[in-house]
Design a protein around this nucleic acid. Sequence first.
DNA 1: GCCGTTTTCGGCCCGACTGTTTTCAGTCG
Length: 569
Amino acid sequence: MKNLLIAKILHNIADILELQEVPFKPQAYRRAALAIEGLTEDIEERQQQDKLQEIPGVGGSIAEKIGEIIKTGKLQYYEKLKKEIKINFEELNGIPGLGPKKMKVLYQKLGVQDARDLERVIKQGKLQNLPGFGEETARNLLQGIELLKTRPKRFLYAQVLPIVNEMLKRFQQYPFVQKIEIAGSFRRGKETVGDLDFLVISQQPEKVMYAFTTMPDVSKVLAKGTTRSSVVLSNGLQIDFRVLREKEWGSALNYFIGSKEHNIELRKLALSKGYTLSEYGLFRLKGKKLVAGRTEQEIYGKLGLQYLEPELRENTGEIQAAQRQRLPKLVTVKDINGVFHNHSSWSDGQNSLLEMARKAEEIGFKFVSFNDHFGHMGITNPLNVKRLPGYLREVEKIRKKVGIRVFSGVEIDILKDGTLPLSPAKLKELDVVIASVHVSQKMPEAEMTKRVCKALEDYPVNILGHPTGRLLNVREPLALNLEKVFEVARQRGVFLEINSQPPRMDLDGLKVKAGLQAGCQFALSTDAHAAGGLEFYPLGVLCARRGWLEKKDVLNCWNLRKVEKVLEK
DNA sequence: GCCGTTTTCGGCCCGACTGTTTTCAGTCG
């Protein structure tokens, strides 16, 4: 799978061309790179089928370059560019306030290649002599470098959720705030966010911005104006505030929810229909007459589109689908009747089976499924052949104590050779079998793919647990050909798990969508290790929605009898 | 370098804030 390598090279080319001030080409390379990053299938297979140019943004020239990378692992054109400019773009791009123009000056005049060089020349006071650089710029860049060193890359959705709720509560209380909503990638339900964007309607913007920039947890004010301000909290999280007028609420909401790629496509569509779209509204090109802006529905309507839920706005075909009135009716939190994959004190969970079941009942679920670890050596205190009967008896007991359906089962390890440590016959006695990779996670792609597929083929598995195994900000995904795994899962009627745990959210939206297109169905799980963990199921719903799922695609939304039936393997 | 329901050539999203200027370029989202 060379997708990410190729995307990276194209990004780097875009960086270099941008620095050389080559017009338009950088965007072209960037667009192709983004499209390839989002691709779930192996780009080498695309190439073999001669279908590279079907990727949006990939034309003849870039297709040829991709071919060269696949064939030789290198790209002459890129090697040539690299010789011209040696800069660590990835690092320098992370410094706020530093863009391609300043980078170029710093490189040409002072030979700055990375953050360390930059820090050195600033401290030597060499910046002041450069055109366009002043004391303030030097100070800001230095602070930017500090930020780069300390700030976590991206925040988990669940990590910022309490901050969002607290901010909303705080500002709703102020008499000078008429309306406040959260936008940005948080609103789109992305599993991680880089910053938070709030939109406010107020007749007294100065008061809003004062209240915002003087909040107790603010460590730095990046910008402060009457319509836009930005701060950084002590944990490094950046928050942006915009104050708007009622008549532009819809267009601003649309603009700040994003994604950027969605916005660009939307604006192009507007132009093709004789309009221009900005955060201030949809205007006729001729005469600049305001056509829509108060609500998002109004704007999408004028552009001939169905209303698009924020989770869909990633420019992965949603605009085309909305044009044809073919958008999915997305699954919602209240459609979820219960959750799979929960751990108790029988393995590595904090609470007893009964405590967990009572919590599930309290949340309002109609069922809960227990799947304590089986066969994993080490800290997880796994179930084994000897302990399993006792576990099942205990589940039987609590069934009589709660008013919801309780499924019994295990989360069983897919061993290195693709076998499971319990026979198919024994597994059939359980309600729900979840198979997951926990041990030997570093394995070449072909081997890992074979291993997972073999487990699904040889055993009565109901659900493939956290399919990619990646942990946000911590661990990369398993080397796995998901296309092949999806195909086997579809054939064998194995549900793909959508794991709601904050650092997992696995599969994520994009991969859910790929699974859906491959004909797979999904099971939503909480993977709770304590009673409170059951409350994270809305995170899984976000992944499902971002993956275009409807009720019919998600096992948890089916009626109980149908669920029981499909689980009998 | 890519793309097309006005186009195979001539376009390529749009505006606020900052800092360094003295009317604007660069950066950001």
